[in-house]
Amino acid sequence: MDQLQIGFLIYPDVIQLDVTAAYQVLAFPPNTRVHLIWKHLSPIVSNEGLSLMPTVTLTNCPPLDVICVPGGGVGQAKIMGDREVLHFLQRQSVSAQYITSVCTGSMILAAAGLLQGYRATCHWAFREQLAMLGVEVIPQRVVIDRNRVTGAGVTSGIDFGLTLLGLLCGEAVAKMTQLMMEYSPAPPFNAGTPETAAPEIVRSLTQLGKPLLDTFLIQTKETAAQLRLKN
């Protein structure tokens, strides 16, 4: 069996767990080869300060069976307007078996014109902004719509990865991967969604994240206007 070529777009200020959670899952089977893609091969620094090493560039990346776009911090706004990156995603989408994202990576896919007319998800705090880009937003952990597979916020990358692996390699392989990772969530607090967290916790986090939300909103409005012009 030919190796499945899976590529994660990485970029300065990317959320590292958006990448590494799904990477851990998808790299387990022997018939997958996972690439980290950026404009150059020098290390990039994630939103959390972790250095990630690209393995291929936008120009020498092989044709991918799966392209995955993770979300990011403030730096993601630049990526949403980066024509070189958006054109790369558009090129790869022509032949990719699955076009996917984790967290706010779906907003980058939408900026590339690859999610309009599809159902998708993202981090709960950015659902309204994703909808502004012409996407039907579904508030679920993982959303599958034809060959688009999207995960919600950050930790959903594991669920996303297992779901995608089941589609690619079968349920047995996905279950074996889950067992290898001993993935049996039992969080110490029931505060993982705005529906289960106490209202004061939601308010505090929303206030803390307001600068990021505002930065994204500026770029989202600009991107939405550009997409309307194209249509």
Results as ranks from 00 to 15, higher is better:
168 L>G: 06
168 L>I: 09
168 L>D: 04
169 C>T: 08
173 V>F: 04
176 M>T: 12
178 Q>L: 05
179 L>G: 01
180 M>K: 13
181 M>H: 00
182 E>L: 05
182 E>V: 04
182 E>S: 07
183 Y>C: 05
183 Y>M: 05
183 Y>W: 13
185 P>E: 07
185 P>M: 07
186 A>P: 01
186 A>K: 13
187 P>R: 08
190 N>G: 07
191 A>D: 13
191 A>G: 06
192 G>P: 13
192 G>C: 10
192 G>Y: 09
192 G>T: 13
195 E>A: 13
195 E>D: 15
196 T>P: 04
199 P>W: 03
199 P>L: 03
200 E>Q: 14
200 E>D: 11
201 I>V: 12
202 V>R: 09
204 S>F: 10
204 S>D: 09
205 L>M: 10
205 L>Q: 09
205 L>E: 07
205 L>K: 08
207 Q>I: 09
209 G>W: 09
209 G>Q: 14
210 K>L: 12
210 K>D: 12
210 K>T: 08
210 K>R: 11
211 P>V: 00
211 P>S: 05
211 P>F: 08
212 L>K: 01
214 D>S: 15
214 D>K: 14
215 T>S: 13
215 T>G: 06
215 T>V: 15
216 F>D: 00
217 L>V: 01
218 I>P: 00
219 Q>I: 02
219 Q>N: 04
219 Q>G: 06
220 T>Q: 05
220 T>L: 00
221 K>S: 12
221 K>V: 11
222 E>N: 06
223 T>K: 02
225 A>V: 02
226 Q>H: 08
226 Q>Y: 04
228 R>K: 15
229 L>F: 11
230 K>V: 08
231 N>R: 11
